[in-house]
Computed example of a mutant assay.
Amino acid sequence: MPFTCEIKELPVQQALSVRTRSPVENLPNVIGQTYGTIIQYMSELGEQPAGAPFVAYYNMDMTDLDLEIGFPVNRELPGKGVVQPSRIPGGRTGTCMYTGPYQEIAPAYDALAKLIAEKGLEPTGVAYEIYYNSPMDTEPSKLQTLILFPIKS
């Protein structure tokens, strides 16, 4: 399956997020509950997300994933409890659009890693997934996920 992978310059994006850990099999519940917590807090602030939700993966240990789950926002907002201000880094970034079931995303990661290596670049090791639709109301074959690999300076 061909993927649209590119190297782009992206702006820094302010966010509200929760940093947590989870085994891969618990991801749907952890992500859903965390999105709910963040949306509830944003509602208290009278704010709305500035775009699609994301998850940052700081490792790929499927038994103990180190995650940052959040929403982009239009400006830096204060944190409360587990919900804290954060940023999706800007600068040179490898991007790859994937359409399909989450459990079949690995070839898109491989295609993006190959492009970055071919360009002689090095990723930071953090992978972001931005979710343009939800498995709650979209069939798995039509789920759209933008993968971001920030590039080391």
Rank of each mutant, 00 (worst) to 15 (best):
L45E: 13
E47K: 11
P49E: 07
G51I: 04
A52P: 02
F54D: 00
A56F: 02
Y58Q: 05
Y58V: 02
N59R: 09
N59L: 10
M60P: 03
D61M: 11
D61T: 06
D64N: 15
D66Q: 09
E68I: 01
G70Y: 04
F71Q: 01
V73N: 00
E76C: 08
E76L: 12
P78S: 08
G79Q: 01
G79E: 01
G79W: 00
K80L: 06
K80A: 05
V82R: 13
V82P: 04
Q84R: 13
Q84L: 12
P85K: 06
P85C: 07
S86R: 08
R87F: 14
I88W: 02
P89E: 07
G90V: 03
T95K: 04
C96D: 04
C96Y: 03
M97G: 06
Y98G: 00
T99S: 09
G100V: 05
E104K: 13
E104Q: 15
E104M: 15
P107G: 06
D110E: 09
A111H: 05
A111T: 07
A111G: 04
A111V: 05
L112I: 10
A113C: 05
K114Q: 12
L115Q: 05
K119E: 14
G120L: 06
L121T: 01
E122D: 14
T124W: 10
T124A: 11
G125P: 04
Y128Q: 01
Y131Q: 05
Y132G: 09
N133Y: 06
S134P: 01
P135W: 13
P135C: 13
P135N: 14
P135I: 14
M136P: 02
E139Q: 15
E139M: 15
P140L: 13
P140G: 14
